[in-house]
Lab assay of single mutants.
Amino acid sequence: DVEPGKFYKGVVTRIEKYGAFINLNEQVRGLLRPRDMISLRLENLNVGDEIIVQAIDVRPEKREIDFKYIP
């Protein structure tokens, strides 16, 4: 289970104008929005990159997770 405030290693699987989709595993995916990136820009991410993200909002009923990147 993903818990708000905890850090997780994930893989960038898709990049859109509104953010990057990060997979923690095959069943768990969330969104990293540009506003939640500190010292990292969306255009510097590539599909396949491994990054450490912090879960900031977890909505299991909608199967949605918002992430934050903190270097």
Rank of each mutant, 00 (worst) to 15 (best):
V2H: 04
E3Q: 15
E3C: 09
P4F: 09
P4L: 15
G5H: 07
G5R: 07
G5V: 03
K6G: 10
F7A: 06
K9E: 06
K9I: 12
K9H: 13
G10T: 01
G10F: 04
V11F: 11
V11N: 05
V12I: 13
V12W: 02
V12A: 01
T13K: 07
T13P: 00
I15Y: 01
I15Q: 01
I15C: 03
I15W: 02
I15F: 02
I15M: 07
E16S: 11
E16R: 09
E16D: 08
K17T: 13
K17R: 14
K17I: 13
Y18P: 01
Y18H: 08
G19L: 03
G19A: 07
G19M: 04
A20T: 03
A20S: 03
A20Y: 04
F21S: 03
F21M: 08
I22F: 03
I22D: 00
N23V: 09
N23Q: 13
L24R: 00
L24Y: 02
L24N: 00
L24S: 01
N25F: 09
N25D: 10
N25W: 11
E26Y: 14
E26W: 15
E26L: 12
E26I: 13
Q27G: 12
Q27M: 14
V28F: 08
V28M: 10
V28Y: 10
V28E: 07
L31F: 08
L31D: 01
L31V: 07
L31S: 02
L32Y: 01
L32P: 01
L32A: 01
P34E: 13
D36N: 14
M37A: 06
I38W: 07
I38H: 14
I38R: 11
I38V: 13
I38E: 14
S39G: 15
S39D: 15
L40R: 06
L40N: 05
L42G: 03
L42Y: 06
L42M: 08
E43A: 12
E43V: 10
N44V: 09
N46G: 12
N46C: 12
N46M: 14
V47F: 05
V47Q: 06
G48L: 05
D49I: 06
D49K: 04
E50I: 15
I51M: 06
I51T: 01
I51Q: 00
I51N: 00
I52H: 06
V53R: 00
Q54R: 07
Q54D: 01
I56F: 10
I56D: 04
D57F: 12
D57K: 14
D57W: 09
V58M: 06
V58Y: 10
R59P: 03
R59W: 06
P60W: 12
P60N: 11
K62A: 11
R63M: 13
R63N: 14
R63V: 07
E64V: 10
I65H: 04
I65C: 04
D66T: 09
F67I: 03
K68Y: 08
K68G: 14
K68F: 09
K68L: 10
Y69T: 03
I70V: 14
P71S: 10
P71G: 11
